[in-house]
């Protein structure tokens, strides 16, 4: 249940951030729009990291996640203070690298758990796949967004939009999988690690 709450919160935050920053760009208040985007990067990282943190079992890796998260927050705050508001590619790139690494570790942990149910029968798989595809496909776009002109960025933004669509489709599949699992009479599935769903 926690994971779905996180994903719902993320979707709302993502929609709100897009709308607010878009509106701020329209009224020509770019610095405020960048601040909103930078704040959203922090929220996005926090929610994705929390999601993976809750799902992984290895305590040492959990500690590493906490440490990396702390370092990430420090870097973001430093970047925000040290330079005027702009699209901070460094923060977004760092965020993508960290979350992609967490997702890969999560999958690695999952395939090492002996079970008789297919991994794609669990909503968590679709959520992680959605995050992974979204961050991987926008990785180069966000990394270079700072050096692109406003027109070029607007042109390439189709990549981000398509990635968001794919991500949201995968999140919907996760929700549907959860619903299917709830309707299912197969009680053996309750033995899985995804008990919180």
């Amino acid at each position: 249940m926690k994971s779905f709450f996180i994903i719902t919160s993320y979707s709302i935050a993502s929609f709100a951030s897009d709308q607010i920053s878009g509106w701020l760009f329209v009224i020509d208040r770019s610095s405020a729009a960048y601040s909103v985007q930078n704040a959203f990067t922090l929220i996005e990282y926090s929610l994705f990291a929390l999601l993976i943190y809750l799902e992984i079992h290895n305590k040492r890796v959990k500690k590493i996640v906490l440490f990396l998260s702390f370092s990430f927050y420090c870097t973001c705050i430093y970047n925000y203070i040290s330079s005027p508001p702009h699209f901070d590619s460094l923060n977004v790139t760092l965020e993508s690298i960290l979350i992609i690494a967490y997702c890969i570790y999560f999958f690695f942990e999952q395939i090492n758990i002996p079970r008789i149910t297919f991994i794609y029968a669990f909503p968590q798989f679709w959520i992680t796949a959605g995050i992974l595809i979204y961050l991987a496909s926008t990785f180069f776009l966000f990394m270079q967004a700072d050096s692109l002109t406003r027109e070029a960025r607007r042109g390439y933004w189709i990549i981000a939009i398509l990635s968001q669509i794919i991500r949201n489709v995968l999140f919907i599949i996760a929700f549907l999988t959860k619903k299917h699992k709830e309707n299912s009479l197969d009680k053996f599935d309750n033995q899985s690690i995804y008990t919180e769903f």
Binding site: I104, F107, A129, L132, I133, A136, S137, T138, F139, F140, L141, M143, I159
Partner: peptide, 13 residues
């Protein structure tokens, strides 16, 4: 880069 990352990710999944 985007195509490569996408292919890698889908390949991994």
């Amino acid at each position: 880069g985007t195509i490569g990352m996408l292919v890698l990710t889908i390949g991994l999944i």
